[in-house]
Design a protein around this nucleic acid. Structure first.
Lengths: 188, 188
DNA sequence: CTTTGTATACCTATCGATAGGTAGGTATAC
DNA sequence: GTATACCTACCTATCGATAGGTATACAAAG
């Protein structure tokens, strides 16, 4: 098996970035949580940029797998979209955290290029998957329209999460997402 | 008149937070831009929290004034909402920056309480103003519905800004906002 | 079966840079 | 003379990163 320590670093790192961002990620604090010395983290991730890129990459890989799971096991697209919006709700449930790549998107100017690319990859994963689900719903199924709508839904969900986080109130997320459905932005 | 230096600090501080967040705001860097020493900033703002709160407060005060100006001089609500969405576009035009309070919303966990309150006040200003405009459009005018929709629109616009920033592509913002209108989230 | 070499996965100790904040001095204006 | 608006000098804490040492494991060589 892969190194337990490396896994522990990534797990703690993910949680930290979801709460304090890339700039709030500290090798010393991370080392303390894992139970090693900060110098040892450099053994697994030479630079902070390497760690950041690895975290963002794993984040979208796991998201892609989860989304594909929804699509495979949920025949009803409306329900599939509810599972999707629930993923972003889970981050809030978990200590009022937010999407790792959403936070990093805000920190765009301070990110190493390698990290920026992985953050964009996460957005792509969301948009491609959403476009696929949307296309399956609309019989007239304009692919380009579906992609534009997918981008809008992903952005809107990210905004809802950000708002709820700033209030530390998960019900804010629920209300906003419900409004998206009422307005017709997210099909039911 | 009020101190020119104090104004210069706030102007430079606002731009920095819009690009690097509250955590990316440094007294030394700020002092360099203004042309004074970092210790002198403490004369105007005793702590970083004081500066952060002052920045966020001025931000929502100016936003409120601008929004009220739109409402006063623009009889057509649809056009009024276009002026609103354009405000958030301007931040992106200005060096791919984002809303100061949007960035701080992400940094929620690292903010002094006084700053958190001002960030929430900015959101309130947006929601209250949007609800007012929405109420004027809908004859059936349910006030509660308007407020929910207002919250959704504000969150969605923040998400659109975040997405566009992460791509450093203002056309992404335009496309997303247009999708919001097409979907009916934002009335035309 | 023992010795030797090498890669793994940590460690201690330290570097230069930067952070927010403080104490106390100084020049100007009223 | 006193308040304003700066300054120099310095504090402690933290940052990512590096150099070099160490304990363990395992494979090849004698």
């Amino acid at each position: 098996m892969k190194s337990d320590t490396r896994e522990a670093i990534m797990e703690a790192g993910r949680k930290t970035v979801q709460a304090h961002g890339y700039n709030g990620l500290s090798f010393r604090e991370l080392a303390k949580e894992v139970g090693i010395k900060s110098a040892s983290i450099h053994y697994h991730f030479p630079t902070k940029g390497d760690l950041g890129a690895a975290l963002a990459r794993r984040y979208w890989e796991e998201a892609e797998a989860a989304f594909d799971g929804f699509w495979a096991e949920t025949p009803e697209p409306g329900l599939c979209l509810r599972k999707y919006t629930n993923v972003f709700r889970l981050a809030l449930e978990n200590g009022n955290r937010m999407c790792l790549c959403g936070f990093m998107a805000a920190e765009h100017d301070d990110l190493p290029d390698a990290v920026k690319l992985e953050v964009q990859a996460f957005a792509d994963v969301n948009v491609v998957w959403l476009a696929k689900v949307l296309s399956s719903m609309d019989a007239s199924g304009d692919r380009m329209m579906a992609r534009e709508r997918a981008l809008a839904i992903y952005a809107a969900i990210g905004g809802a999460q950000l708002m709820a986080r700033s209030r530390a109130d998960i019900s804010v997320y629920d209300r906003i997402v419900e409004s998206y459905r009422v307005a017709g932005l997210i099909p039911s």
